[in-house]
Amino acid sequence: METIRNYLDNMFAGLPKTARVMDLKNNILSNMEEKYNELKSQGKSENEAIGIVISEFGNIEELVNELGIRKDGETASLPVVTREEVENYMTVKKTMGIQVGIGVFLCILGPALLILINHLLEKGIIANDLSSDTTGIPGVIILLVLVALAVGIFIYSGMNFERYQYMENGVQLPGSLEADLKSRYDAYYSTFNLKIIFSICLLVLSPITIFIANMMGEEYDVYGIVVLLLIVAIAVFMLIASGTVKESYDRLLKIGDYTTKHMEVHKKEDKVIGAVAAVVWPLAALVFLFCGFVYGLWYIAWIVFPITGILFGMFSAAYSIMASKEK
């Protein structure tokens, strides 16, 4: 019986879910179920009965033509996906969220360790036999190793995800699956909200560590910054990991930023913002390394990244508003 229902769901997946179409679908379903029950009572096996019922379904195009349903351009061209594909996509997307989160975490951890190690070396708290010319080097090496590791993770998870890239451009879900996902989304949503609120609070409160360190004495300033960066890294990890899961729901259910209407505006936006990001972030990294190596400003040069982040965020938001106004 489940097989018949799924079959019908798939057949109707491409049609608009108007009351009339739903009514028709229900009629056909009860028709098929009745036929199935009768075949079973005549002594047919489960498989035989299902086979006969499905073979006598006919051709969905016949209904489409008769009802004069215009499968509107966009939805008609969207691929219909199976439950398995959707489950795989969600699993891979979730893993990707965690991996990207870890990558970004490492990128923030890098400067934190750099500052910490430089400080410890300069003060001669560890390895005090190192000459003062070379104290900057170990921290930078660790930073570069961590960044390399992060880049490796980004590439790896990106390649893993490639197989499911097509799911991002909008798909059609069979009816029962869509209802299923919606209820799962509702259940997930409150956890998601809590995580977001928690991470934002962490971010807002993180500068407190600097004040606390400062109160403890000037020599603790550096530790304040290190702890601040660690807290930021944790918060950003949580934002990315849970944001990615939410995004996968949004994309599948075509809600939030991924309604069909939005998507078109976004495609253009994404391109422009992506192009700007491709220039701005490497530039920030360049400034960071330059300040560090040439002027030895490692303890403060990291500030380039949060500043770039804020400016870039402002730019993206402003651009989005302008773009949506034009429409």
């Binding site: 009860s30 379904f57 209904l63």
Partner: peptide, 26 residues
């Protein structure tokens, strides 16, 4: 109703004509 009609078609035609669901409902 739907199923009764499609069953009658099958019976009256001695199983020589089975109307598909989509044909019936269109």
């Amino acid at each position: 109703y739907g199923y009764e009609i499609s069953k009658n078609i099958k019976e009256l035609s001695d199983g020589k004509y089975i109307m598909k669901e989509t044909t019936l409902y269109s």
